[in-house]
Design a protein around this nucleic acid. Structure first.
Lengths: 256, 256
DNA sequence: CGCGATTTGTGCACGTCTTCACAAGCGCCT
DNA sequence: AGGCGCTTGTGAAGACGTGCACAAATCGCG
């Protein structure tokens, strides 16, 4: 995760036109709200209540209101939130008003899929360049982009501003790639390699490890299995457990 | 805190003693520790200090000690942790002593990559079956597995116990797939589709959304960029550049 | 115009997570 | 044996995140 520092605490000066350092948990949920809002806009909704948006995003309505309150009062009491306005605001806060360029390093199994994933383009990201260290892969064309050798990274980065670097290499190559990315000025990295990256301060790294997700699920499976083996209530003993049961961030079943 | 329990005599029939409900944050880190421990074991280390393991896992040493303390006292003061023993314990807690079967639904761009990802097999997971709704994809063989039609899910699930379901379909198909998985008894789902799943209580859902990760990074990029602007520039309107908003819809291109 | 229905925004209390700091325990050396 | 250095395990305190409950604000309608 990213670590940042609190700069000196300056007193609040008047209104809030700039970014009032959002809580990290809120930032992590804003993209989910944004996706839900786009869905609502597509289906013709012009306004939405906190309850409605919270349901669509899979969170508690109080949490949603608090999250949104952090970026200002863009709702209307008694009515709800204007969908278009809220989209605009969240995109502004997330810095999505500009299309950001992504450099993808490692065009193996996973990288190949990422290069072809249209979920990036549809949400304001453009894959600007593909790299790989394997000469056999250099020159291959994926989705209209030619794979270049990773050593060309600095040259390519000089041509176009790279906003985010994505690492989809094997673990043993990830740190070297990260170093190269940092060297060309990339300060945000999304790491799919199963390893810890060491980066200088000011560089944000987010990690996605598919196996870890499975292992976390495995734990819950294991726990549930050992609970059913316990005495007494067979069947769905789960529903009888106290509220603290699944403390994961999994969404609850949305009541109808 | 509560009593740490002993692993129990191996001769005794009966499962590992009941799991002392671990904090969820701890559970999420255990797989990372496990990976670091395997690396250490491979490089010949027999013991490791909390400081060393914490570095390898990218966390604070105090946090690591507290995490490990939740599963018992498996360290030796003045020495550190026995690597092999700790691996054994964490794998036991995570329920990784048995190989878990995974059903993967959606063999599109991402699903194809997941089916070929060896990071699953190397960490105790076996992809037991592949499914897709597109008849054109049914019958295709990936990594030695034949893609079956999703309607066969219940029949296949009857043959072999499915521990975890992975959804890699377009968003519009995800809920139906989730319902089918739940219907055949799956209680753990890993969802790659960008949507909220509604599942009954007792079913765990973890979500991985690649675009969301990028958007979170985008926020930090945006914040860093606005910090580099001198603090003297107060009140620079963020929305001053609405020329060509690239805010396309979240409508996913459906491939199946 | 005023009133009631509705919904936002938020103060407050509570629970969870993180970090510090240190006592307790272990091994080694003299 | 005894002391010394090192490391774990753990209270305690603080930071952070969550959810309740309600006042404030707005709209629609008679």
């Amino acid at each position: 995760m990213s670590q940042h520092r609190h700069p000196g605490a300056p007193g609040r000066a008047g209104a809030v036109p700039t970014l009032p350092d959002l809580p990290e948990a809120t930032v992590a949920r804003l993209p989910e709200y944004l996706r839900a809002l786009h869905n609502l806009a597509d289906s013709g909704h012009e306004t939405v209540s906190s309850e409605g948006l919270a349901n669509a995003a899979g969170v508690n309505s109080a949490k949603l209101r608090k999250d949104l309150s952090h970026l200002g009062s863009y709702g209307t009491r008694g009515v709800g939130y204007d969908v278009a306005l809220l989209i605009e605001q969240i995109e502004s806060v997330l810095g999505l008003t500009q299309c950001r360029s992504v450099a993808l390093v490692g065009v193996g199994n996973l990288g190949h899929a990422l290069a072809g994933y249209d979920g990036f383009a549809t949400r304001g990201f453009r894959i600007a360049a593909l790299f790989d260290a394997d000469p056999a892969r250099v020159g291959e064309e994926i989705n209209g982009l030619v794979v270049r050798h990773v050593d060309e990274l600095s040259r390519v980065a000089a041509e176009q501003l790279i906003s985010i670097g994505v690492i989809a290499t094997p673990a043993r190559a990830a740190q070297a790639v990260a170093d190269q990315l940092v060297a060309v000025g990339v300060t945000s990295i999304l790491n799919f390699a199963p390893c810890v990256l060491s980066v200088p301060e000011g560089v944000d790294v987010r990690k996605v490890d598919l196996a870890i997700e499975l292992q976390i699920l495995s734990f819950h499976e294991h726990r549930k299995a050992s609970l059913t083996a316990l005495p007494g209530t067979a069947g769905s003993a789960l529903t009888a457990l106290p509220g603290g049961l699944a403390a994961t961030d999994t969404q609850e079943a949305i009541g109808t």
